[in-house]
Design a protein around this nucleic acid. Sequence first.
DNA 1: CTAGGATAGTCGCGCCTGCAACTATCTAGA
DNA 2: TCTAGATAGTTGCAGGCGCGACTATCCTAG
Lengths: 158, 158
Amino acid sequence: MPTLDLFRFAPFRLNRLAAEVSAALASEYRERYGLDIPEWRVLATLGFGNPACSAQYIAHCTRTHKSTISRAVTALLKRQLVERVENKDDRREWLLRMTRQGQALYQKLIPRLKRRESEILSCLTARQRKEFAQLLGKIEKSLGLVQTIKEAGEAGGY
Amino acid sequence: MPTLDLFRFAPFRLNRLAAEVSAALASEYRERYGLDIPEWRVLATLGFGNPACSAQYIAHCTRTHKSTISRAVTALLKRQLVERVENKDDRREWLLRMTRQGQALYQKLIPRLKRRESEILSCLTARQRKEFAQLLGKIEKSLGLVQTIKEAGEAGGY
DNA sequence: CTAGGATAGTCGCGCCTGCAACTATCTAGA
DNA sequence: TCTAGATAGTTGCAGGCGCGACTATCCTAG
């Protein structure tokens, strides 16, 4: 007679943990800066080595649906946190980048988020944190979640 | 100038991984058996050491909102996968338990889900899987996600 | 015994988000 | 060149779910 302990079942544990961690961070970007997760992902992508990229690129490498990214970009445009410029080579897409105001918000937000992450992981030793990151990496890799940046990049620079 | 690599940021990684794992399992309980996640959580709770408990108990220990559990129970009642009996001692609540049909579905579903979990974790060695479970446990504990069963139990048996 | 507060469960409302259709644009092949 | 298919982005729609109000019931203090 098969049985399953939900509390030892990795998929359930990952879901619950991710929800809890997201809730812990939401107070930073939502309550303090009025951002939701998709909007934060747009800023995060533009803020790290991708100063001007398309919405599609952001959707790909954050694994977020393009309609969700589209709405996030619309909201960020309205708040003048990002701007978009026409891509002469391909007029279907727009190149997105943070405005000065967007960068200012980003600069203030990042240290707060890093601090929150540190708090959450502070129950682990430095060695355990590294181990945890590596194990996550192995699972991500086997699920095909890792190479999105490189592949996206190689697939035409976006 | 602070910066943050989304792909090394634990909250993002956990979110993305949880979403991917959930999607991988959804084909089992949704496509094959027409269950969504809350419904599956109800069955899982009833199937493991809690043969007759209240909706509130399920909500507590799965960390799911009571309205979500309520709707899941309604759907399961309609499909006659669970039934509920009046609790003479407290007529505000109902005791839920799986019907014979519910148990039959549960028996067929469990091995499939376990197999999927094994596939997902097959990229890790046995030792790494154990390590991963322990690290998850430490984080869960520090976030107060662990003792829900015991606390719920001690809080009156529900 | 009664009144006020707590708790179980239900349900309406609104937000979020994925799906799919749509437009505009690009690309490849006849 | 022209056409068919692919792709970027937007948007209407519907389903899922959390919030909060509501009813019914229970409990505790006076």
